[in-house]
Design a protein around this nucleic acid. Sequence first.
DNA 1: AGGACTTGTGCCTATTTGTACAAAATTTCC
DNA 2: GGAAATTTTGTACAAATAGGCACAAGTCCT
Lengths: 206, 206
Amino acid sequence: MNANKIPDIIIGRLPVYLRALQQLSEKGILTTSSQELGEIIGISAAQIRKDISQFGEFGKQGTGYSIPFLIERLRDILKVDRVWEVVIIGMGDIGHALARYHGFSNRGFHIKMVFDNDPAKIGQKAGDYEVFDTATLGERVKQSKIKIAMLTVPATSAQEMTDHLVKAGIKAILNYAPISLNVPRGVHVQYIDPVTHLQRMTYYLD
Amino acid sequence: MNANKIPDIIIGRLPVYLRALQQLSEKGILTTSSQELGEIIGISAAQIRKDISQFGEFGKQGTGYSIPFLIERLRDILKVDRVWEVVIIGMGDIGHALARYHGFSNRGFHIKMVFDNDPAKIGQKAGDYEVFDTATLGERVKQSKIKIAMLTVPATSAQEMTDHLVKAGIKAILNYAPISLNVPRGVHVQYIDPVTHLQRMTYYLD
DNA sequence: AGGACTTGTGCCTATTTGTACAAAATTTCC
DNA sequence: GGAAATTTTGTACAAATAGGCACAAGTCCT
């Protein structure tokens, strides 16, 4: 409803809402309620209503939310109403898997270039991409004004590559290396480490 | 200090602490402080002290924390002082990458079996593993009493596979499919979807 | 002995979540 | 056809949770 500062915890839930909405949309469903959405996602209906109402009154009493409209609003809010170009650093198994993944294009992202430092890989194909030398990373990223990187290098070189990326103007890093990255303010990092995710669950097992 | 209920948000930070400590340990460093740890991870020192103090008085004033001791305590708390057997469902690119990843064994996990439903893959090798038919998943998982699964199948079959896994006694699922899973109480799910992670960051970009 | 560090925690503040209800829209049922 | 029941939102208020500050009390080093 207002342009106040939105808590990051709410921002983190919006992509999940969006994903569920697009899934409903693909089934041809046109409206939903906070109740239904909450059951799909596993979040309370009140929380969903409150999160969404931070940005405007998108629902209608008695009816719920128009799915196409809410998708449009969320894509706008999250700035994925456009296509973001992304680079991948590191063409190991994971980088390769990401390069071949077809789930990016219809959700706001396009892989533009991929890099590795292994001479045996440079110049070869990974998915549809020619693998570039990481030595050329700074210049290529700067020139193309790309803001987002996926980092799939070994932990030992992750910080070094991060420094290069930051210097080249990257503002968002999706880090697959099992290490905490040090970045200046204004650069965002998200972590994907299967082991930390698993360890978070073992606490609750017998 | 007490055996109260520990908030999940704290549990979620412990694996990150553990990872940083093991990294320091590999460098041969024997002690650290909440200050130093906080700078590495990007969390306030007070929060780290408070989190750790939930489980006991592991530090020493003036000195900080013994890294080997704190690692031991965290591994105990998170129950990764043992080795958990894990199955992977889905031998696409990501499942294959996980099957070949060598970062599990020294952090508490061991991949025991891998599955796919594609006749062209069943019986073949994926990493060091023979790919089993998902049709045999229920029986094999039940028999080996495995509690943890990594789910790397397409979104369209993720819920169906989840139901099989739950029925077979799986209590923790690391889900790579871009879909929210419906599971009964007592079954834990962690989500890894690169797109939702990316979308969480685009909000902050220009 | 004194100074520099560092923990664990009490207290306070901020953030986050839950509850409940008026108001609006739709559906049901006579 | 219209009244009553049902559904659902958005929000005010309350409760619960999480995080920051600051300091007494140890510990180490010189």
